[in-house]
Design a binder for these strands. Structure first.
Lengths: 85, 85
DNA sequence: CCCGATTTGTGCGTATGTATC
DNA sequence: AGATACATACGCACAAATCGG
């Protein structure tokens, strides 16, 4: 009832945190997460992806560096506004 | 009869106390609150904005640091005199 | 001088979220 | 991975100062 398709595969030759980041980036790209929307909390994402919280943190940090999200400590991480393509 | 446009939106990627501070700063900037005028009490502002008193306190503290208002304990918070532009 | 209403100041507890070690 | 720290946010309660009657 609660298993959806797995988000990451530890076996693949790609860092798990990168797989998580790509998963989230994919959701943004697909329009599932619109600019201004709040991303789920770290713990929730970790449970959903089946990885450790630290791994999610590493992934979100990457998204931040890519400018895809903005993090407000103690409030949450939000989808950034799209720069004019 | 009593609903005006909402002051804050907890969902937005901006701290609530910051939204409250900006709201008040906007009223000052718009000339609605003139120098020397008394700002509403914390609880009144909280009710108007639909936030907790502590959040208003945080907002007013910010306005104080910005030099926009002056607070006299047990008396009230007043709009500061404009520095020569 | 005292009383009561009002307002800011402060502390505690709870919840959630990120930051740090 | 786990534990601790820190910040936001809400809610409540009480203290202290002000001001009017």
């Amino acid at each position: 009832m609660d298993d959806q398709e797995p988000v990451v595969d530890p076996q693949r030759p790609v860092y798990v945190w990168q797989q998580v980041a790509d998963w989230i980036a994919g959701r943004i790209d697909a329009g599932e997460l619109l600019p201004g929307a709040r991303l789920e909390g770290e713990r929730e994402l970790a449970e959903r992806a089946g990885v450790a919280v630290g791994t999610v943190r590493r992934a979100v940090e990457d998204l931040r560096e890519r400018g895809l999200v903005v993090t407000l400590p103690a409030k949450g991480t939000y989808i950034a506004d799209r720069p004019n393509s």
